[in-house]
Computed example of a mutant assay.
Amino acid sequence: MPDWTPPTSVNLVDLGFMDSRSKLIDLAAFLDRVQRAGQDDDFRVHALKNAIALLSLDEPERAREVLLSFSDPSAEPVEKATMQGAIGAFKA
């Protein structure tokens, strides 16, 4: 096998732009459908919009902040679960 050396620099924009663009368009289309259906007051939709606002931060830990924005901030466990399964966003 010939000697192979990995490239020294990778253009991350070239690698990830089209995928990210597609996901952003999908999200916009989802929000359009939800609004047309009159369901944009759902707490999960509010959580998505709050997370979208975090994307404009010029900080290196946007992914962490977005993930935490969907999480339950309480430190104490609940005595008994009110439902089974996850719903993807914390409902205050």
Score class of each variant (00 low, 15 high):
Leu31Ser: 03
Ala75Leu: 13
Lys49Thr: 07
Met1Cys: 03
Lys80Thr: 15
Gly88Asn: 02
Ser74Asn: 13
Pro60Ile: 02
Phe90Leu: 04
Glu61Thr: 09
Ala29Lys: 07
Lys23His: 11
Ala81Thr: 07
Asp14Lys: 11
Gln35Tyr: 00
Leu57Cys: 07
Ser56Thr: 11
Val34Cys: 00
Phe70Pro: 01
Gly85Val: 03
Arg36Cys: 08
Arg62Ala: 13
Ala89Gln: 03
Gln39Asn: 11
Pro7Lys: 05
Ser9Val: 13
Ala92Asp: 08
Asp42Gly: 04
Asp3Met: 10
Asp3Ser: 12
Ala53Phe: 02
Ser69Asn: 09
Trp4Arg: 10
Val66Phe: 04
Met83Cys: 09
Glu59His: 07
Gln39Asp: 05
Met1Asp: 08
Ala81Tyr: 08
Arg44Phe: 10
Asp14Met: 01
Asp42Cys: 01
Pro6Trp: 02
Asp40Ile: 06
Leu55Pro: 04
Gln39Ile: 00
Arg44Glu: 00
Arg21Val: 00
Asn11Met: 03
Arg44Leu: 00
Thr82Arg: 13
Met18Asp: 15
Phe17Tyr: 15
Lys80Tyr: 09
Leu12Glu: 05
Val10Met: 05
Gly16Val: 08
Lys49Tyr: 09
Asp58Pro: 05
Gly16Leu: 11
Ser22Phe: 09
Phe90Met: 03
Leu31Pro: 00
Thr5Met: 14
Phe30Gly: 02
Ser22Ala: 12
Ala47Cys: 07
Glu79Ile: 10
Thr5Ala: 15
His46Tyr: 06
Arg62Met: 05
Ala53Cys: 01
Ser20Glu: 09
Gln39Val: 00
Met83Phe: 14
Ala37Tyr: 03
Asp26Ile: 03
Ala63Tyr: 04
Gln84Asp: 15
Leu55Ser: 01
Val45Ser: 01
Leu68Pro: 05
Ala37Leu: 13
Asp42Leu: 09
Asp40Leu: 01
